Amino acid sequence: MKAVGLVRGLAAHELRLLVSIALWVARRPHGARSGRVFGYARGQGAPMLGFAFVCVLETIAMAVLLRPWPAIERPVLVLDLYGVLQVVGMHAASVSRPHVLDDTALRIRRAAHVDLRVPLDVIASVRREMRYTHEKREGELDLAIGSQTTITLELTEPVRHFTFLGRPRDVRLVRFHADEPDVLVRAIREMRTLAPAPRTH
């Protein structure tokens, strides 16, 4: 059953990548109807597209080198093209799936594999905090982009996060990246003043 769940999770992730490419081309951010969107992929665009270009060159080179052996060339070509699609899909997902802030929650995303909803009334504090190193600790979630996070959320109670493989984790502190952290921090604080007071236990 675990293997079936893993396959389903991977298939769902691949589908989200393909949908993200379509959304990116159409310039339609996912989940943006309910609130304000805040990007986080600005700094990784050039490196990701450069990596995709290198993958394309590798695909062409391998196709030329393996031309005398078509039985090997075709599977390798498929794998190489799939790799290019993955790189483009990851960047497309980062662009087309931004953070979303509405009057009830902050939706924190990273590409196609993290989508965490944090209710405003469980946010104890939010601050701009630039960090380049992150130690894995119980109850903390670090969503770095280019090894960097720029915003820290502390919560009054844990929210549930599901890992890429579907394993649940309860987190009370979230660090993540935004292209304009000052703007997002200010917007969260303003929205919190309109939301019910944070829950305490």
Rank of each mutant, 00 (worst) to 15 (best):
M1P: 08
M1Y: 12
G5H: 12
L6T: 10
L10F: 15
A12M: 14
A12H: 13
L17Y: 09
L17V: 06
A22Q: 07
W24R: 06
P29W: 10
R33M: 00
S34E: 10
G35V: 03
V37A: 12
Y40Q: 00
A41L: 08
R42G: 14
G43M: 03
G45N: 13
P47H: 00
M48C: 12
M48A: 15
F53G: 14
V54Y: 08
C55K: 09
A61I: 14
M62F: 09
V64C: 03
R67S: 12
V76T: 09
L77A: 11
L81F: 10
L85M: 10
L85Q: 08
Q86T: 11
Q86Y: 12
V87S: 06
M90H: 07
H91Y: 11
A92S: 04
A92M: 01
A92N: 01
V95S: 04
S96I: 05
S96H: 03
R97Q: 10
D103H: 05
T104K: 01
R107W: 00
I108Y: 10
R109S: 08
R109A: 09
A112Q: 12
V114C: 05
V114K: 02
V122H: 08
V126R: 02
E129M: 09
T133A: 14
K136Q: 15
R137G: 04
E138I: 10
G139T: 06
E140F: 04
E140G: 00
L143D: 02
T150E: 04
I151G: 03
L155R: 00
L155C: 00
T156M: 03
E157H: 06
V159M: 04
H161D: 01
R167N: 09
P168E: 05
P168I: 15
P168C: 06
D170A: 11
V171M: 08
L173S: 07
H177E: 01
A178I: 03
P181A: 11
D182R: 13
V183Q: 15
V183Y: 09
V185H: 10
R186S: 08
A187R: 04
R189M: 13
R189A: 14
E190Q: 12
E190Y: 05
T193L: 11
A195S: 05
P198E: 05
R199L: 14
T200S: 14
T200R: 15
